[in-house]
Design a protein around this nucleic acid. Structure first.
Lengths: 216, 216
DNA sequence: GCATTAATTAATAGAGCTATTAAATAAAAC
DNA sequence: GTTTTATTTAATAGCTCTATTAATTAATGC
């Protein structure tokens, strides 16, 4: 039987389509397991076209990965100008982070995977973003120190606090296959579980640092 | 220049040496990126010998992975018969888990990686271990319910509690490249950091559930 | 329309990987 | 010592993957 080639709908061009589909494939299978042949097959074009537009698999990947890495690194943020009480700052960080990553649930695995398997590439990209993240840490630390001085929060470094939040949030995504297996969750059920767990995570983080008694 | 082949010292046999070295390579690079050629090179034997002893790369991997997966899944444990106060049970779980994983710092990445990239294989292996883990959860839940009834601990499921512990502990290992990069840590410095963070993690977990006031 | 440029494809070189085979070497059995 | 069995190697078939090249088709400019 003849396989019909699906042409991109209307005016969509292959270049963009390749980018979109490559992103999915890389997120699913990581760099090493992704083949340009597979991308071409899903796009519905000749494999050489991938190389016509992007020359090498490496360049295609880097172009996508840089964007994704940036999204990943800036997924932790808060609006300083909102002037919220500290508790609400923390709640906002936890929930906002969880929300952004939920839109890219396979990203944490890709980041961790590439970081581990290809530290050279990772370092090159990380350099370009480092400062943005560090300044966020500095901002958070300012707020945190105020709370510590006022004895509303126990002694803790901003780094440790952030690391706890990231651990609790991100682990939900990288351990999805294991948890889904144990709990018998479908993908949708799992995503629902993640959403629910946001409150539990915030609760854990906040109680973990707060010196004030629980409110009902 | 001629590359001298390093023969295994004394009476050591290739079969065991292959297992030992394959374990390292798989842990470093995962299943897909590991080649039997690379293993043979490190062992110092002909590549065909790998296949002579283990027939396929898959069989070699599975043999090692099963053992490692079991170690991973049973790394969370506590001695019920010790009859410790609940706080000490939790402290023990956190620190013991962290200690065991510290002896296999690359294992969490391998587990997550294989789980994600090869769910079929993962499921087949998981089945054989599931019950052991579930019974641990049941045990922990028993202790937990006692505490909740006595109003010494807030309402929380054993699953959520365990998930928090695992998140905080395991994320330390899968994010090692990123954290080491940001902090400029060497491997040894990083492992030291992990050790120190054990207390912080326990503190976060315990305060996160305890209804009793902090002791100094 | 015709020439020029862009997009797309077929074909394939070249590399690396797994697994097998047959031959060579070492060990064990008797 | 000779036969038998186990271990080890060299060689290579058969795949799959990336990247290139040359040819083909479509689009654009004039």
């Amino acid at each position: 039987m003849s396989v019909k080639k699906e042409r991109p709908v209307k005016s969509e061009n292959f270049e963009q389509l390749i980018l979109d589909i490559a992103e999915n494939v890389f997120l699913e299978r990581g760099f090493a397991l992704t083949t340009t042949t597979e991308i071409a097959k899903r796009v519905g074009c000749n494999q050489a076209l991938i190389h016509y537009y992007f020359r090498t698999k490496d360049r295609l990947f880097e172009r996508l990965f840089e964007k994704k890495f940036f999204a990943f690194m800036t997924s932790v943020s808060y609006r300083r100008e909102d002037n919220l009480p500290f508790k609400e700052i923390i709640r906002g960080i936890v929930h906002n982070h969880l929300k952004i990553i939920s839109e890219n649930p396979k990203l944490p695995f890709l980041i961790i995977s590439e970081m581990t398997l290809n530290p050279q590439r990772f370092r090159a990209i990380a350099e370009t973003i480092e400062s943005a993240v560090k300044s966020m840490l500095v901002d958070l630390n300012l707020e945190l120190q105020k709370e510590i001085e006022a004895k509303r929060v126990r002694e803790i470094s901003a780094f440790d606090l952030l690391l706890s939040i990231l651990s609790l949030n991100l682990f939900m995504f990288v351990s999805q296959p294991l948890i889904s297996y144990v709990k018998g969750f479908t993908w949708d059920e799992y995503m629902n579980f993640v959403k629910q767990r946001g409150d539990e995570i915030f609760f854990t983080v906040w109680r973990g640092i707060s010196l004030e008694p629980d409110k009902q």
